[in-house]
Design a protein around this nucleic acid. Structure first.
Lengths: 173, 173
DNA sequence: GCCTAGGTTCAAAAATTATTGAAACTTCAG
DNA sequence: CTGAAGTTTCAATAATTTTTGAACCTAGGC
């Protein structure tokens, strides 16, 4: 059932052959995959996070690739995504260039950051446009109902933008 | 610039030729499309909602198709989605089978309902699995750190499930 | 009852998004 | 310095999602 190429059990760290996820690990991964799906985060990214989440210590690049059975490219991109959203931390081990990864302490904070990074830019970019749409509607004397809707949308947008920085300070906390 | 087929301007309601979205309407549509994208809602659905949102009165099937320039199938599916998530209401006009649509009064409520419908099933389905994963970890004597993480995940899940019904009563409010 | 306006379904095509893998880049141990 | 371990990049491919359109329903006006 496995390639009969491991001769002596000793010196041979060249291709360590990692074991695939265990049933209980798969269960957790599925949960993260589903939740991530709601926000449009790709499967592979969720799987990586799940692996780090259920692992006792920091996990390195090759372990992730091996256990998840995905490509180097996916691992690299996945880690980049998680890094960019401050969902993981690297632990450098002495005397090696290799990085090892673990989840940031608070999943909650991670999720908030993730949401922020998706929603905020949209709100910001929309701000002037929405104001123009409202002004436009007022100018052309649209139905009061439409004006009312557009006003509410503008108010929300503004409030959301005001609140956002409080929810989580942009760079470091 | 247009097909020279409209002879006399009189009797000819067969293919009314709707005009495409105006710039200010496009702007609003773009906003909704972006926001919808975050939740994985397709472009066409967001566009339909935007059109209803910025229109003064209820809008019918053919107008939607005509002004948005999309297929019947897309309109039908889009309306189904919006209906299913209680984001739009139909107004039947007397003496006609035709339905005319308008957004439900509260966009906020619509969004909450939409989120609920995506998140809740995931939480519910995950509940037993998560508990099993935790039990498993305890049994096999995993690192306290992992146990702690999994416990927190379970607590969240439970609390979310408790809170959910309060956020918005399942069928009608 | 029939017939058709009004709408739905769903398989196939198009568009979008995720993954792969080979080549290129970077960094540090020796 | 140099070499190779460790990682990133990105064009090509695979997988998934969305849209289309033609065939099919169905309610209700006549």
């Amino acid at each position: 059932m496995k390639p009969p190429s491991e001769k002596s059990a000793s010196r041979r760290p060249s291709r360590p052959s990692y074991e695939p996820l265990q049933p209980h690990e798969i269960e957790l991964a599925d949960f993260f995959v589903r939740m991530a799906g709601i926000l449009g985060v790709p499967r592979s990214v969720a799987e990586i996070y799940a692996l780090l989440y259920i692992s006792s210590g920091p996990v390195d690049f090759d372990q992730i690739q091996g256990r998840l059975g995905i490509s180097k490219g996916s691992v690299s991109q996945g880690l980049k995504f998680l890094r960019d959203h401050e969902m993981i931390l690297s632990v450098k081990e002495a005397g090696s260039r290799r990085e090892r990864w673990q989840p940031t302490p608070s999943l909650a904070a991670s999720l908030v950051a993730l949401l922020r990074s998706q929603v905020l830019p949209a709100l910001e970019q929309a701000q002037p446009g929405l104001q123009r749409v409202l002004a436009d509607a007022q100018t052309r004397g649209s139905q009061p109902e439409v004006i009312e809707r557009l006003s509410r949308l503008n108010r929300w947008n503004s409030r959301a933008l005001e609140l956002a920085p409080l929810l989580l300070p942009p760079p470091g906390a």
